[in-house]
Design a binder for these strands. Structure first.
Length: 287
DNA sequence: GCGTCCAGGTCTACC
DNA sequence: GGTAGACCTGGACGC
Protein backbone atom coordinates (compact mmCIF):
# COMPACT_ATOMS: atom_id res chain seq x y z
CA UNK A 1 0.00 0.00 0.00
CA UNK A 2 1.41 3.44 -0.89
CA UNK A 3 2.24 5.73 2.04
CA UNK A 4 1.27 9.37 1.87
CA UNK A 5 4.43 11.38 2.65
CA UNK A 6 6.24 14.51 1.46
CA UNK A 7 7.78 14.46 -2.03
CA UNK A 8 11.24 15.07 -0.61
CA UNK A 9 10.98 12.12 1.80
CA UNK A 10 13.98 9.77 1.71
CA UNK A 11 13.71 6.53 3.63
CA UNK A 12 17.47 6.17 4.07
CA UNK A 13 17.80 9.57 5.74
CA UNK A 14 15.18 8.66 8.33
CA UNK A 15 16.16 5.01 8.80
CA UNK A 16 19.78 5.93 9.50
CA UNK A 17 19.03 9.16 11.36
CA UNK A 18 20.46 7.47 14.47
CA UNK A 19 21.19 3.97 15.74
CA UNK A 20 17.69 2.54 16.23
CA UNK A 21 17.69 0.80 12.82
CA UNK A 22 20.50 -1.38 14.17
CA UNK A 23 18.48 -2.51 17.21
CA UNK A 24 15.85 -5.26 17.20
CA UNK A 25 13.09 -5.48 16.24
CA UNK A 26 14.16 -3.15 13.43
CA UNK A 27 16.11 -4.45 10.46
CA UNK A 28 17.33 -2.25 7.66
CA UNK A 29 18.59 -3.28 4.23
CA UNK A 30 20.24 -0.19 2.83
CA UNK A 31 20.88 -1.70 -0.59
CA UNK A 32 17.20 -2.50 -1.02
CA UNK A 33 16.02 0.62 0.85
CA UNK A 34 13.85 -1.65 3.00
CA UNK A 35 13.04 -1.16 6.67
CA UNK A 36 11.30 -3.94 8.57
CA UNK A 37 9.96 -3.98 12.10
CA UNK A 38 7.85 -6.18 14.34
CA UNK A 39 4.90 -4.53 16.04
CA UNK A 40 2.19 -5.75 18.39
CA UNK A 41 -1.39 -5.89 17.16
CA UNK A 42 -3.40 -6.98 20.17
CA UNK A 43 -1.98 -10.28 21.36
CA UNK A 44 -0.20 -10.99 18.11
CA UNK A 45 2.89 -9.66 16.43
CA UNK A 46 3.02 -8.40 12.85
CA UNK A 47 6.02 -7.94 10.61
CA UNK A 48 5.78 -4.60 8.84
CA UNK A 49 7.90 -3.66 5.83
CA UNK A 50 8.51 -0.17 4.47
CA UNK A 51 10.21 0.10 1.07
CA UNK A 52 11.32 3.00 -1.06
CA UNK A 53 10.40 2.29 -4.67
CA UNK A 54 10.55 4.47 -7.82
CA UNK A 55 6.82 5.04 -7.32
CA UNK A 56 7.18 6.12 -3.69
CA UNK A 57 7.05 4.59 -0.22
CA UNK A 58 5.24 1.26 0.01
CA UNK A 59 4.03 -0.41 3.20
CA UNK A 60 3.20 -4.10 3.59
CA UNK A 61 2.48 -6.25 6.62
CA UNK A 62 1.75 -9.84 7.54
CA UNK A 63 -2.00 -10.12 7.80
CA UNK A 64 -2.48 -6.93 5.80
CA UNK A 65 -1.97 -3.22 6.26
CA UNK A 66 -4.52 -1.93 8.77
CA UNK A 67 -5.19 1.63 9.92
CA UNK A 68 -3.17 0.82 13.05
CA UNK A 69 -0.20 -0.33 10.95
CA UNK A 70 -0.26 2.89 8.94
CA UNK A 71 -0.46 5.00 12.10
CA UNK A 72 2.50 3.11 13.56
CA UNK A 73 4.55 3.56 10.38
CA UNK A 74 3.83 7.29 10.38
CA UNK A 75 5.06 7.46 13.96
CA UNK A 76 8.17 5.41 13.22
CA UNK A 77 9.05 7.60 10.22
CA UNK A 78 8.32 10.81 12.14
CA UNK A 79 5.96 11.99 9.42
CA UNK A 80 4.10 14.29 11.81
CA UNK A 81 7.03 16.69 12.20
CA UNK A 82 6.89 20.06 10.50
CA UNK A 83 10.49 20.95 9.67
CA UNK A 84 9.81 23.93 7.39
CA UNK A 85 11.07 26.63 9.77
CA UNK A 86 14.15 24.54 10.64
CA UNK A 87 14.96 24.05 6.96
CA UNK A 88 14.49 27.77 6.34
CA UNK A 89 17.07 28.46 9.07
CA UNK A 90 19.47 25.93 7.55
CA UNK A 91 19.28 27.47 4.06
CA UNK A 92 20.96 30.66 5.20
CA UNK A 93 23.79 29.05 7.14
CA UNK A 94 26.94 27.81 5.49
CA UNK A 95 27.56 24.14 6.11
CA UNK A 96 23.94 23.46 7.00
CA UNK A 97 22.21 24.08 3.66
CA UNK A 98 22.56 20.38 2.81
CA UNK A 99 19.93 19.75 5.50
CA UNK A 100 17.37 21.88 3.70
CA UNK A 101 18.30 20.45 0.29
CA UNK A 102 18.04 16.84 1.48
CA UNK A 103 14.99 17.30 3.68
CA UNK A 104 16.84 15.72 6.62
CA UNK A 105 15.62 16.08 10.19
CA UNK A 106 13.09 13.33 10.75
CA UNK A 107 14.22 10.91 13.46
CA UNK A 108 13.50 7.18 13.36
CA UNK A 109 11.21 6.38 16.28
CA UNK A 110 10.18 3.06 17.81
CA UNK A 111 6.55 1.96 17.39
CA UNK A 112 5.89 3.10 20.98
CA UNK A 113 7.34 5.75 23.25
CA UNK A 114 7.85 3.10 25.92
CA UNK A 115 10.21 1.27 23.56
CA UNK A 116 12.04 4.52 22.73
CA UNK A 117 12.50 5.34 26.43
CA UNK A 118 13.77 1.89 27.38
CA UNK A 119 16.22 1.89 24.49
CA UNK A 120 17.54 5.31 25.49
CA UNK A 121 18.05 3.98 29.02
CA UNK A 122 19.96 1.06 27.50
CA UNK A 123 22.37 3.40 25.71
CA UNK A 124 23.61 4.95 28.96
CA UNK A 125 27.14 4.20 30.13
CA UNK A 126 27.81 1.20 27.91
CA UNK A 127 29.04 0.16 24.51
CA UNK A 128 26.65 -0.14 21.58
CA UNK A 129 27.19 -3.90 21.66
CA UNK A 130 25.84 -4.08 25.18
CA UNK A 131 22.84 -1.93 24.22
CA UNK A 132 22.03 -4.42 21.46
CA UNK A 133 22.43 -7.32 23.84
CA UNK A 134 20.07 -5.83 26.45
CA UNK A 135 17.42 -5.10 23.81
CA UNK A 136 17.65 -8.60 22.33
CA UNK A 137 17.47 -10.28 25.73
CA UNK A 138 14.38 -8.28 26.66
CA UNK A 139 12.65 -9.16 23.39
CA UNK A 140 13.53 -12.83 23.83
CA UNK A 141 12.04 -12.84 27.32
CA UNK A 142 8.76 -11.57 25.83
CA UNK A 143 8.66 -14.33 23.23
CA UNK A 144 6.00 -12.88 20.95
CA UNK A 145 7.37 -13.20 17.48
CA UNK A 146 10.20 -10.77 18.10
CA UNK A 147 8.08 -7.81 19.18
CA UNK A 148 9.36 -5.41 21.83
CA UNK A 149 7.71 -6.19 25.18
CA UNK A 150 4.85 -4.27 26.72
CA UNK A 151 5.32 -2.27 29.94
CA UNK A 152 3.23 -4.95 31.67
CA UNK A 153 5.64 -7.69 30.67
CA UNK A 154 8.72 -5.74 31.75
CA UNK A 155 7.01 -4.81 35.03
CA UNK A 156 6.37 -8.50 35.66
CA UNK A 157 10.09 -9.29 35.60
CA UNK A 158 11.93 -9.13 38.92
CA UNK A 159 14.95 -6.89 39.36
CA UNK A 160 17.05 -10.04 39.74
CA UNK A 161 15.82 -11.33 36.37
CA UNK A 162 16.46 -7.98 34.71
CA UNK A 163 19.94 -7.92 36.17
CA UNK A 164 21.01 -11.53 35.66
CA UNK A 165 19.05 -12.70 32.60
CA UNK A 166 18.41 -9.53 30.63
CA UNK A 167 21.88 -8.37 31.71
CA UNK A 168 20.92 -4.76 32.29
CA UNK A 169 23.18 -4.55 35.35
CA UNK A 170 22.72 -1.58 37.67
CA UNK A 171 19.93 -0.28 35.38
CA UNK A 172 17.59 -3.01 36.70
CA UNK A 173 15.87 -0.92 39.42
CA UNK A 174 15.53 2.03 37.01
CA UNK A 175 13.90 -0.14 34.34
CA UNK A 176 11.66 -1.92 36.86
CA UNK A 177 10.39 1.37 38.32
CA UNK A 178 9.80 2.91 34.91
CA UNK A 179 7.94 -0.12 33.52
CA UNK A 180 5.86 -0.42 36.67
CA UNK A 181 4.88 3.26 36.56
CA UNK A 182 3.79 2.96 32.92
CA UNK A 183 2.02 -0.38 33.37
CA UNK A 184 0.05 0.90 36.35
CA UNK A 185 -0.88 4.15 34.55
CA UNK A 186 0.82 6.20 37.26
CA UNK A 187 2.88 7.52 34.37
CA UNK A 188 0.98 8.41 31.20
CA UNK A 189 3.50 8.56 28.36
CA UNK A 190 0.92 10.10 26.05
CA UNK A 191 1.39 13.31 28.04
CA UNK A 192 5.01 13.42 26.86
CA UNK A 193 3.78 13.48 23.26
CA UNK A 194 1.37 16.34 23.83
CA UNK A 195 2.68 19.13 21.57
CA UNK A 196 0.75 21.75 23.53
CA UNK A 197 2.87 21.22 26.63
CA UNK A 198 6.09 23.26 27.10
CA UNK A 199 9.52 21.62 26.78
CA UNK A 200 10.42 22.43 30.39
CA UNK A 201 7.46 20.49 31.74
CA UNK A 202 8.21 17.39 29.67
CA UNK A 203 11.93 17.53 30.52
CA UNK A 204 11.14 17.79 34.21
CA UNK A 205 8.89 14.74 34.08
CA UNK A 206 11.41 12.63 32.16
CA UNK A 207 14.20 13.79 34.49
CA UNK A 208 12.17 12.65 37.49
CA UNK A 209 12.41 9.05 36.29
CA UNK A 210 15.40 7.37 37.99
CA UNK A 211 18.13 6.60 35.48
CA UNK A 212 17.15 9.40 33.10
CA UNK A 213 19.81 12.10 33.44
CA UNK A 214 20.60 15.06 31.15
CA UNK A 215 21.73 12.93 28.21
CA UNK A 216 18.71 10.60 28.36
CA UNK A 217 16.25 13.49 28.77
CA UNK A 218 17.56 15.35 25.73
CA UNK A 219 17.99 12.24 23.60
CA UNK A 220 14.41 11.21 24.30
CA UNK A 221 13.42 14.84 23.69
CA UNK A 222 14.94 14.57 20.23
CA UNK A 223 12.67 11.59 19.51
CA UNK A 224 9.72 13.64 20.77
CA UNK A 225 10.52 16.45 18.34
CA UNK A 226 11.83 18.74 21.09
CA UNK A 227 15.22 19.86 19.87
CA UNK A 228 16.38 22.69 22.13
CA UNK A 229 18.85 20.47 24.05
CA UNK A 230 21.86 18.85 22.39
CA UNK A 231 21.85 15.49 24.21
CA UNK A 232 25.65 15.40 24.39
CA UNK A 233 27.35 12.10 25.09
CA UNK A 234 30.91 10.83 24.88
CA UNK A 235 30.60 9.90 21.20
CA UNK A 236 29.07 13.17 20.02
CA UNK A 237 31.41 15.31 22.17
CA UNK A 238 34.36 13.68 20.47
CA UNK A 239 32.79 14.02 17.04
CA UNK A 240 31.88 17.68 17.39
CA UNK A 241 35.36 18.44 18.74
CA UNK A 242 36.87 17.02 15.54
CA UNK A 243 34.33 18.71 13.33
CA UNK A 244 34.00 22.20 14.82
CA UNK A 245 36.83 22.76 17.32
CA UNK A 246 39.96 21.49 15.54
CA UNK A 247 39.99 18.31 17.62
CA UNK A 248 40.10 20.18 20.93
CA UNK A 249 37.78 19.03 23.67
CA UNK A 250 35.71 22.03 24.76
CA UNK A 251 33.15 22.65 27.47
CA UNK A 252 29.54 21.73 26.80
CA UNK A 253 28.54 25.39 27.08
CA UNK A 254 30.90 26.21 24.21
CA UNK A 255 29.26 23.57 22.02
CA UNK A 256 25.81 24.84 23.02
CA UNK A 257 26.80 28.39 22.05
CA UNK A 258 27.89 27.21 18.61
CA UNK A 259 24.45 25.78 17.81
CA UNK A 260 22.48 28.46 19.66
CA UNK A 261 21.58 30.35 16.43
CA UNK A 262 19.24 27.47 15.61
CA UNK A 263 17.19 28.22 18.73
CA UNK A 264 14.54 25.59 19.37
CA UNK A 265 16.22 23.39 16.74
CA UNK A 266 19.76 23.64 18.15
CA UNK A 267 19.82 19.95 19.08
CA UNK A 268 18.66 18.87 15.65
CA UNK A 269 21.23 21.08 13.90
CA UNK A 270 23.91 19.64 16.18
CA UNK A 271 22.88 16.03 15.59
CA UNK A 272 22.66 16.37 11.83
CA UNK A 273 26.01 18.17 11.80
CA UNK A 274 27.82 15.36 13.63
CA UNK A 275 26.12 12.63 11.57
CA UNK A 276 26.44 14.31 8.15
CA UNK A 277 29.19 11.89 7.13
CA UNK A 278 26.79 8.96 7.58
CA UNK A 279 25.01 10.25 4.47
CA UNK A 280 28.05 11.44 2.52
CA UNK A 281 27.61 8.86 -0.25
CA UNK A 282 24.05 10.10 -0.86
CA UNK A 283 24.89 13.80 -1.14
CA UNK A 284 24.86 13.69 -4.95
CA UNK A 285 21.13 12.90 -4.73
CA UNK A 286 20.29 16.31 -3.33
CA UNK A 287 23.14 18.56 -4.50
C1' DG B 1 45.35 -15.72 30.93
C1' DC B 2 44.89 -11.59 33.60
C1' DG B 3 44.26 -6.76 34.83
C1' DT B 4 42.78 -2.34 33.27
C1' DC B 5 40.17 0.80 30.68
C1' DC B 6 36.08 2.63 28.91
C1' DA B 7 31.82 2.93 26.23
C1' DG B 8 26.15 6.98 22.97
C1' DG B 9 25.78 8.31 32.04
C1' DT B 10 23.50 8.65 36.47
C1' DC B 11 23.26 8.95 41.30
C1' DT B 12 24.78 10.12 45.87
C1' DA B 13 27.60 12.17 49.25
C1' DC B 14 30.30 15.76 50.31
C1' DC B 15 32.32 20.29 50.13
C1' DG C 1 26.83 24.33 42.10
C1' DG C 2 30.65 21.56 41.48
C1' DT C 3 33.19 17.23 41.99
C1' DA C 4 34.67 12.40 43.24
C1' DG C 5 33.56 7.76 43.37
C1' DA C 6 30.60 3.81 42.69
C1' DC C 7 27.95 1.27 39.56
C1' DC C 8 26.81 -3.64 35.61
C1' DT C 9 28.62 -5.39 31.47
C1' DG C 10 31.67 -6.95 27.94
C1' DG C 11 35.05 -6.00 24.33
C1' DA C 12 39.66 -4.04 23.39
C1' DC C 13 44.13 -3.63 24.70
C1' DG C 14 48.69 -4.29 26.89
C1' DC C 15 51.57 -7.30 29.26
Amino acid sequence: MPLDCPKSFRLDLVARSHGWYDLAPFEYDREERRLTMVILAGERSKKVTVEETPQGIEVSATGGVTRNVLATVRRVLDLGSDLSSFHAACRSREGFDWIARSGAGRMLRAPTLFEDAVKVLFTTNCSWGLTRSMVENLIESFGRGGAFPTPEHVASLSEATLRKEIRVGYRAPYLAKFASAVASNRLDLARWEDRDRPDEEIEKEIRSQPGFGPYAVQTLGRLLGRHAGLGLDSWSRKKVAELRFKGRRVKDQRIERFYQPFGEFAGLAFWLDVTRDWHADSEKLWS
